[in-house]
Simulated assay, not measured.
Amino acid sequence: MPTTPHSPAVRLTEHALAYLHSAALRAAALLGVADHLADGPRTAEELAAATGSDAAHLRRALRLLATREVFREDETGAFHLTPAADPLRSDAPSSLRDAVVMLTDEPFWRPAGQLADTVRRGRTVFEDLFGAPYFGHLERVPEAGAVFDTGMAGLAESENGPIAAAYDFPADGTVVDVGGGRGGLLRQVLLRNPALHGILHDQEPVLRHHTLDTPELTGRWQTHPGDFFAAVPPGADVYLLKRILHDWSDDDCVRILRACRTAMTRPGSRLLAIDAVVPAGNAPHPGKTMDILMMTSLDGRERDEPAFHRLLTAAGLEPSRTLATDSTLSIVEAVVA
């Protein structure tokens, strides 16, 4: 019986080959195709000359991406930027180029191919493939660590403004961004709340690349190197944990949260766990996709609201509310129990 474009057989085959879309997207990001379309459409030949690639092969990769509305090929053979392709420009506001390179890089790509082994064992095979756990590998291979740090900063840039706007921060006081990377979220919080002071807490190599040293924030921030499993700066009004807990097992999350709980000595101190909160049901959700990435490379996971509540309670914290944001992440607020 012949298949139709929307038959189960065709749809299942498309799902099986979906990794080719990721491969084409990575190629376009690495070649900087979107940058060369910023001033208008160009043919595959023109793009190939600009990117140092083969025109025929480049056209085939872009043609596939155009089926997902990432670029558009017109009747003359010229390719155009689309709303979905525009964030691939390196100079785009909230550019996702570095994030795409990170998400399709080998430390995520290879373990995903071994998902069946991960499911059988109940743990990631990352160490079998790379000789160290995920973050240990990033420390041993500086190039991979740089891709991760840059990619995470790019991914976060589109989220930080909506998250900072979604929460009613205190009028004054101190906010600690725990494991805050280059400080993008803390920067947005401080810009929106001009009487707040901020502390960026992370490992020393990460802090060297922070983004807080701007005229608007002069005198209102400091960095604090350290290990969030051991201790975090005490006495703050608000503690931020953005995209931290999803990296770790439940036991490790409780260790991180207990370190924060110990630091929460100020009356009324609050902790904000900022992650995807996975909804029930069969509808698509970015957290369900990211959950597989966490499972294959880190032994982490995305969690539903009851799972967050269990972690917080185990660490001596009391969940108070969950707030949606205009991003894929939500804010789970907790106070000292």
Rank of each mutant, 00 (worst) to 15 (best):
P2C: 04
R11D: 05
R11T: 10
L17N: 10
L20W: 14
H21R: 10
A24I: 00
A24S: 15
A28W: 02
P41N: 03
R42Y: 02
T43H: 10
T51R: 02
D54R: 03
R60S: 11
R63L: 12
L65R: 06
T67C: 10
V70S: 01
R72C: 03
E75A: 15
P93R: 04
R97D: 04
R97S: 01
A99E: 13
P107C: 01
P111N: 00
P111R: 04
A112D: 00
A112M: 14
D117F: 07
D117H: 12
R123W: 08
T124R: 06
L138Q: 12
P142D: 05
E143N: 00
F148R: 00
A166I: 10
F169S: 06
D172M: 07
G179F: 10
G180Y: 11
G184R: 10
L186C: 02
V189T: 11
V206P: 07
H210I: 09
T211P: 00
T211E: 12
L212Y: 05
L212K: 04
E216D: 15
P234A: 15
Y239S: 01
H246S: 09
D247E: 15
V254T: 06
R255N: 11
L257C: 09
M264W: 05
P267G: 02
R270P: 04
L271D: 04
L272D: 06
V277L: 05
G281L: 11
M294Y: 06
T296P: 07
D304R: 13
A307T: 04
F308H: 13
R310H: 05
T313Q: 03
G316S: 01
L317Q: 03
E318V: 01
P319H: 01
T328A: 14
L329Y: 12
L329H: 12
S330G: 13
V332R: 05
V335M: 04
